[in-house]
Structure formats: structure tokens, C-alpha cells
Computed example of a mutant assay.
Amino acid sequence: MKNILNQIVEQKRIEVQQKKQVQSIEYLKQSIHFLNPVRSAKASVLDESKTGIIAEFKRKSPSKGFINENAKVEDVVLGYEQFGASVVSVLTDENFFGGSIKDLQQANEVLSIPVLRKDFIVDAYQVYETKAIGADLMLLIAECLTKDEVHDLAKLAKEIGLEVLLEIHSEDQLEKVNEYIDLIGINNRNLKTFEVDTEKSKQILKQLPEDLIKVAESGISDPEVVKDLKAAGFQSFLIGENFMKNENPGKAFQEFVNQL
């Protein structure tokens, strides 16, 4: 089977080089958002008045194609916030996920809860870009970064005020955790094959540092699974496709929350 992640990262490196020719890091630093303090995802996840769910705006996936091509960002994310989402995640990868920076900017404009930029960060330029477009939290994917790259990108993110979610999916990636990580996610989906195993999170849970907020990611479509993972010790749950596949994702989110 083709390694989808390698394809995405290869394309991402090309995109970053192209962007550098158009806008410099110094230009990004002039953004209205760059000096603004972020809304803390850690605090929002731990806020007991919210659900702990990171609800995702996601138009398509490499494995399934378009999920909800015509969804309006503002309508979806406001529904998420209204019914208790702790954080909203927005895909900004265009080629494989149909997302855009504009999607994140539109979400940021209407939300009072934190916004996670979900993309494939492989270069320091993207860290500056993440702050410049108004995100509060940045995803780093251990599978496509070395231990040193995770360290350097996370350190830079913290220096400019971003929080960092590190995503892993196997025990051997635990060595990539460092002092600059705020939240750690276990992806139930194998990023090389895109197959899902929802038991993965619980297998690795006991090996995670106690002081990090723990997030279960991908393949969650049943409120009972959230209850089970919460009982096991997870504080947050990243869910997107389960809501986005509905005509009204905000309403689907509300119905999901009502069963928790």
C-alpha cells in the first residue's frame, strides 16, 4: 500500500518553499495576530463546563474523498462552540484535505474558544505562519518528524506564544515528547495506511507523562467510546469526520454531546 503520509509531506515541503518566495517570515510577523496572546487550549480542555472535545472542521480525507465539500465554516464551528466544544480544529491542508488558511481565519473570527491548526508542519516557516493566521494551537505529527525536529519546532512555537499538540501513534514515538509539548494525542489511525484501531489509545496511555493533557484522536464515532476512554484517563477527544459527514455538523455534535 502506498504511504500516504510520505506523499503529503513531500508535497508540503514543495508548498513551503513556494510560500517562502511570496511572503517572508518578517512579513508574517507583521500580522495583526502575531503579538496577540493565544486562547489556551489546555485551560479550555480542563474547563468542566465544556466537553473536552476538540471538534474538527474537515472537508475531505485522502482515504474517503470529500466528506462535506460545501459546509460553511462559520455555521459549523459556531455550532461546535455552542454545544460545548473545548477547541475547534481546522484542516488547512488543501491538496489532500480540501482545507485552507481561509477556513481557519474564518473560524478564528467568530469563535471565543481556541483554534487548532491541523496541518503537516515540517518547517519553521509554518510555525510563524500558524501564529500569523490566528491559530492558538499547533499540531506536530511525530510520525513525519525526527526527535530533533519535534524539539526545535515545538520550542519555536512556545517562543512565539503558541501551544503545541504532539500526535503519536506508537510507543516508539514517546521519545519525541519534550518540555515544550502541552497536549499529547494518540492517533488511532495509522497515518501510513489510514486504518483505524480505537484500542490503540488505551494501550499507550499508561506510558504518557502525567503532566500532559491526553487526547484520543481519530476513529471515534460512538459516545460510549468517549466514556470508556475518559474512564481510562483521557481528558480530550479529537473528533471530526463523525460530525462532518452530516448535513448539519453542529446539530450532529449536539446530539453526540447529549449522549455523553
Rank of each mutant, 00 (worst) to 15 (best):
F120L: 08
N188R: 13
L91P: 03
I186L: 06
A85V: 09
K58H: 12
A124Q: 13
M244L: 11
D197G: 05
E69L: 13
N36L: 15
E94L: 14
P37I: 07
M138D: 02
T146H: 09
K230H: 10
E143Q: 13
S24W: 11
F120I: 12
Q21P: 00
D197P: 01
H151A: 06
T193K: 03
V110C: 12
L212M: 10
D93P: 04
N178T: 12
G240T: 08
I32F: 14
E171W: 10
K147P: 06
I8R: 01
V77H: 02
Q7I: 07
S49H: 12
K118Q: 07
A124L: 15
T92Y: 05
L174R: 10
Y80L: 10
D182E: 05
S63P: 06
V76N: 01
P249S: 07
G240K: 08
Y27M: 04
I101G: 03
I239C: 00
M1P: 07
E175L: 15
I141A: 02
K202Q: 13
L212F: 11
A135E: 03
Y128H: 11
E171H: 14
A232L: 10
S44K: 00
K245Y: 11
A154N: 06
K2L: 14
V215L: 08
L229F: 14
Q203H: 14
K200P: 00
N258Q: 04
V22F: 15
E255V: 10
A124G: 11
M1T: 11
L208G: 00
E255G: 02
Q105F: 12
K202N: 12
K202H: 03
D222Y: 13
K206M: 07
L5F: 12
V215I: 15
A55Q: 00
A216E: 01
D123S: 06
K102V: 13
R117V: 11
Y180T: 01
N190Y: 14
L78H: 02
K102N: 11
F243M: 01
A135M: 07
H151M: 11
A107G: 03
D93K: 05
S63M: 11
V9K: 04
Q105T: 09
